[in-house]
Structures are given as structure tokens and as C-alpha cells.
Design a protein around this nucleic acid. Structure first.
Lengths: 230, 230
DNA sequence: CGATCCATTGAGGCGTATCAAGGGCTGTGG
DNA sequence: CCACAGCCCTTGATACGCCTCAATGGATCG
């Protein structure tokens, strides 16, 4: 995986501020980590001794209550960072949605970079603020939206995660990868799998979406989806 | 307000990394901002041309849907930062819960400090990560907890906001300021005011809490509250 | 081709929202 | 100091949306 030389828009442009010697040092310390569908990358409460960059595939980030109810608050796609500096424990689990490959860096090495390279630190801070904005949007969804709005919002977010927001807003039909199960959608939206299924069927019947295959969704009427999302 | 010389634990220790000349420059640019109960500090979508530090009082941070449903995702107390670097718009409104005093700094000045002082930037990043953790806890609450668990969790968070977490976990009775209305609690918990009122009454009847006055709550049985919070 | 897992659909119940009325602070003015 | 007004807050009755439980349907993989 390239650690530098990315376009400014690309997600892991975070490494572009690094000096060549730091890139070399990081690359030397990096380990590749392959996961199969459903595999656990980290469990809630595990020591944060490594940070990860998703290279291919997708993961879900999830917290649980003591009695096993689960809430997904984010999905991680290629280029996304899992882990952070200044922390000693993961406060959430991370699980592969499908076959995925990640790069793992020692947290100590990562922390050193944040301390020595302010531009790198600024990139990390920007990521944190972006994650915060996403989580606050999720709060509005979870606290104040109805099931139909939640499911429509899910497809809007799905487009965003894959850099398709402007394509969606253009109003033209749009096909997007859907690597997560109905259960994952339910755990993200604070619903049950049955309610998600019913709402998805309703949107299908309304001609807003269709499913060319299990792992793909086509937004037939982006404007209607955006409108329903609220 | 002192901008430096704080104990490491204090919230606005973020300014402690600043050189004396930067403190002087910030102080010179700072304006005091007094709000009465219910006043608007900023509206959703407003230009982020200033950042604020809460000096006294408390505020609610809130997002709304187009049709007026509201979700509070955080409260800001003395020492808390409202605003951020690297941004051009507020994505939320901020409203005073009671008489409050804030310090306002030009965003440009604030941004300059983050660029020139890596230790200051690191403090801001730590704040962002702390806010992110809080918002993720809120996601679990909103998506997966029942009304009774939500209200109990609210009192746990209330203690946390006021630095009383360890006092709460000690198990001894504890009196905390409650500057927000039932409506604010409802808007934070994703409930209606009536449901909040019913759950609060149930906790009162169960001997878990009591109200010495409208703006104060006494946790009579911290262990029961923590247990109910889940 | 069958087994398995995931998704869909249906029936019924529960929890929270909604609608409506009454209670009790709190602050103000007589 | 008391009376009154206004605003929160509380409590009750009912409705509705989502959850739960149950069975069927359909895709994927051995």
C-alpha cells in the first residue's frame, strides 16, 4: 500500500505530510492483517497497542450493552483509520463485514509521529472532527427519526461513505456497494432486522431503490430517498 | 478569566501550552459574552468566525430536523469549548440553559495557534476524541436503551459532566446541579417530556433520587442508578 | 440437489407518543 | 405577606409504531 503520494481528496492523504524517513520507518513497522467475513479485528476494551488503516474491504465499529444489545456507530472503508493516538483502550469492537485487508502500525510509532509532526497531527484532528460530525448526525437519526426516515438516511450515508454524495445529489440513478447485512443496518439504525426489511420492501415497492444482487443497491430515485431521509 | 496556570486536570488546561505572548494576544482579542436564560449563542449553520470558552453557566448544543424535531447531543459547562479549528460553519445551535458568561475568540486567531503550537493542537485533538467518545455513548443510549435506562443514564452523565463520576461510583449520596429542564432532558434522551417525567417519578418513588429544588437533584442510591443505567 | 443462513412477511403485544387535564412551583404585584 | 398569574411539570387515557414471536421464502455454498 502506498503511504504517500495521494491526491489531497483521498482519505489516507494523512500520511502525505510525513518525511521520507518516517514513511520508511512506518512501512518497516507495518504488518498486513487479513480478515475473513465476520472475523474480529478488535474486541471492546482491548488494549490499543496498534492502529489500523483499512486497505480493502469494510468493517463495522460497534459498542454493546452488558446484556448484549448492540449499536453500530460507524463503518470503516478503504483508507479509514481504526484506532487513535492518546488512548490506551479500544472503546468499541471492530468486525469485518467481508474479506478485508488492513495495515497495522504499532501505536507507539503512531503516537511518536503525532508528537513530532504537527501537520500529521492536524490530519488526525480533522479525522476526529469528521467522525464527530458523523456521530452527531447519527444521534439525530437515532433520537428523532422514524423507521422510514432512518432507512432512507442509511442509503444517503452509504453513498457518503463511498464518496458518492455529489452523485446522489445530482438526481441520477446510482449503484452502490452494500457490504453489510440487514442485521448490521438494524444495529446501525437502532431498529430490528424485521423493521428494516419492511421499510426496505416499502422503498422497493415505491420504486425508490432496487437490488441487483445481495451486496449492491441501486438508488433509482435519489431525490425521493433524500426527501424521505429528512 | 485565567487563560493559563491551571492544574493538569482542569478543563481549560488547553491554554497552558501557550507562550506568554500568545496568551497576551489571545486575551487582547477576547471578548466577554453574557447570555440570559434561553438566549441563543449561535444558530445551526452560522459562520464559525469565533470560538467560545464557557466561563460560568451552562449551554445546550442541539441539531434539528427540517420539520423541527430537536436532538441535543451535548451540554457545555464551565471550561468547555464551543467551536473548533478547520471549520467554516457551526453544524449545531448553542443555547444558554441559564445566565451564562463566555469568552469569545476570533476563529482566525484560534486557527493560528493550532498551526503554530503543536501542544495546543494536541489538546484540541484530545477534546475532539473525548467529545467523540461521549457522542458514541449517546448513540448506544439513543439506539438501544429503554426509557428507564435512558433517564438513569442521564443522571450518570450529569455527574460525569460535573466531574463527579468517582463520587458517584463511591456509592455515597450525592447532590448535583440540574440546570436543564425536562424538555432538555427529553431532547437529549430522544424521548418526550411526558415519558421523562414518568420515569423520573418512578425513580423518585423507588427512592433512587430526590429533588431538593427544581435545579438540583440528589442521587440517594448511586448503585441503583448505575445499575438501571445499564 | 439439499442444507443452511439470511431475508421477508404476518399476527399480536408492548412501550412510548400523543392528546388532554390538573397540580405545584416561582416570581410579581398589590 | 399574601394573592394571583404564568409556566413547568405531573398524571391519566388512548393511539400508534415498532418489537417480538413465528413461519415462509429465497439465495448461496457445499
Amino acid at each position: 500500500m502506498r503511504l504517500s503520494g495521494h491526491a489531497p481528496g483521498e482519505k489516507h492523504a494523512i500520511f502525505d505530510s510525513l518525511a521520507p524517513c518516517d514513511v520508511a520507518r512506518l512501512s518497516a513497522a507495518a504488518q498486513t492483517c487479513d480478515l475473513a467475513s465476520g472475523d474480529t479485528l478488535i474486541e471492546e476494551g482491548e488494549d490499543l497497542d496498534r492502529v489500523f488503516i483499512v486497505e480493502t474491504g469494510a468493517l463495522k465499529l460497534r459498542k454493546s450493552t452488558r446484556d448484549g444489545r448492540q449499536q453500530i456507530f460507524a463503518f470503516a472503508f478503504a483508507g479509514d483509520l481504526i484506532g487513535r493516538p492518546f488512548a490506551c483502550k479500544f472503546r468499541h469492537g471492530a468486525y469485518a463485514l467481508g474479506p478485508s485487508r488492513l495495515l497495522a502500525f504499532p501505536a507507539a510509532e503512531f503516537d511518536r509521529l503525532t508528537r513530532q509532526n504537527p501537520v500529521f497531527l492536524a490530519s488526525i484532528a480533522r479525522l476526529a472532527f469528521a467522525d464527530l460530525d458523523a456521530c452527531r448526525r447519527l444521534s439525530v437519526l437515532l433520537g428523532r427519526k422514524h423507521a422510514d426516515e432512518k432507512v432512507a438516511s442509511f442509503f444517503v450515508e452509504l453513498a457518503r461513505w463511498q464518496g458518492q454524495t455529489s452523485a446522489l445529489r445530482s438526481g441520477r440513478r446510482l449503484s452502490i456497494a452494500l457490504p453489510m447485512s440487514r442485521q448490521d443496518m438494524a444495529d446501525f439504525l437502532g431498529l430490528t432486522i424485521e423493521t428494516v426489511s419492511r421499510q426496505v420492501s416499502a422503498m422497493k415497492d415505491a420504486g425508490m431503490i432496487e437490488f441487483p444482487g445481495r451486496c449492491r443497491v441501486t438508488i433509482l430515485d435519489p431525490m425521493a430517498v433524500l426527501e424521505t431521509a429528512g
